[in-house]
Simulated assay, not measured.
Amino acid sequence: MKQLIIIFLFLLSASVLFAQEGKRYIKKGNELYQQKKYKEAEASYRKSVGKKSKPVEGNFNLGDALYKQKKFAEAGEQFSNLAGASPQNKALAAQAYHNLGNSFVENKKLEEGISAYKKALLNNPKDDETRYNLAYAQEMLKKQQQQNKQNQKNNKDQQNKDKKDQDKNKDPKKDPNKDPNKDKKDQDKQNQDKKDQQGEPKPQPGQLSKDDAQRMLDALNNQEKQTQDKLKNKKFKGAKVRVSKDW
Rank of each mutant, 00 (worst) to 15 (best):
K210V: 10
S48Y: 05
G113F: 07
F60D: 05
Q145T: 12
S103Q: 09
T130V: 14
D64H: 10
K118T: 02
K39N: 11
N169E: 11
V49P: 05
M216C: 00
P125H: 05
N154Y: 03
Q150W: 02
N148M: 09
A83I: 05
A135C: 06
P205H: 09
P205S: 13
Q146G: 11
K118I: 01
Q35F: 09
L100A: 14
L11D: 00
D188A: 15
D157E: 13
Q198Y: 07
D175T: 03
K119D: 03
Q88D: 15
N123F: 05
D186N: 14
K232L: 15
D64G: 05
S53T: 09
R242L: 13
K149S: 13
E106K: 08
Q146S: 14
K143Q: 12
E57V: 03
D127Q: 02
V49I: 15
K194D: 04
L217K: 15
Q190T: 15
Q147S: 07
K27Q: 11
N123C: 04
K126W: 10
G22D: 04
E111T: 12
L32A: 04
K2M: 10
K164V: 09
K36G: 02
G29L: 10
N59E: 09
K36Q: 07
L82F: 06
K143S: 07
N133R: 03
L82C: 10
A120L: 00
D157T: 12
P203M: 02
K161S: 07
M1Y: 01
H98A: 02
E139Q: 14
Q138A: 00
K143V: 09
T227Q: 13
N133D: 08
K170E: 12
D212H: 04
Y45L: 06
M1D: 14
Q214N: 12
S13I: 06
V241W: 09
Q78R: 03
N191L: 10
A43Q: 11
D196E: 15
E224H: 07
N81Q: 12
V49K: 06
A83W: 11
A73R: 10
D218V: 06
T130R: 01
I6F: 00
E74I: 02
P180N: 01
Y97Q: 10
Q198A: 14
G29A: 11
D127N: 08
K245H: 13
N81D: 06
V241N: 07
S244K: 06
Q226P: 10
N154F: 08
D162T: 02
Y117V: 09
F10I: 14
L66D: 02
P176L: 04
K173E: 14
L100F: 09
I26V: 11
R242Y: 10
K37I: 01
M1P: 03
A91G: 15
N133E: 08
A116Q: 02
L92D: 13
N107F: 01
Q187W: 00
F18H: 10
K28C: 00
E77H: 02
T227D: 15
N148K: 13
Y67L: 07
Q166M: 03
S86E: 13
E74A: 07
S115C: 00
V56A: 14
F79S: 07
P180V: 11
K195F: 00
Y136H: 05
E77R: 06
N124T: 08
Q147G: 01
L208P: 01
G113L: 00
K54R: 03
